[in-house]
């Protein structure tokens, strides 16, 4: 996978994550309008297509490029979901501690 394609894929996954139901709940605490969510999804999809195009314009065979791209994206999705889960856990822990502190 070329570095530029990887970069665009990461940006795309970021947009798609923020625009997803999960991202909306975790990062925006549900305070994201439908229009903004759709806009984020649109940006994510466009970046993803652009990433694929960049990968296809790389020097090697198209089949190989697509295989690499698909498997690279899968890993990025898994990493994004893991980061999200860790963020949520830490976020919950922080707010639980803060609310306990305030109650005292």
């Amino acid at each position: 996978m070329t570095w530029i394609s990887l970069l665009f894929a990461q940006v795309a996954i970021g947009f798609l994550l923020f625009g997803s139901e999960r991202g909306k709940r975790i990062f925006f605490e549900g305070q994201l309008t439908r229009e903004r969510q759709n806009f984020l999804k649109f940006c994510g999809t466009t970046s993803l297509c652009f990433s694929l195009l960049l990968q296809l314009f790389a020097v090697r065979e198209p089949v190989l490029d697509i295989i690499q791209w698909i498997m690279g994206i899968a890993i990025e999705i898994i990493v994004a979901a893991l980061l999200c889960a860790l963020w949520e856990k830490e976020h919950n822990r922080f707010f639980r501690a803060a609310s306990q502190h305030l109650r005292k």
Partner: peptide
């Protein structure tokens, strides 16, 4: 699609 990035720990 709705659960695309969903992984809830513990």
């Amino acid at each position: 699609l709705a659960d695309f990035f969903t992984f809830r720990l513990s």
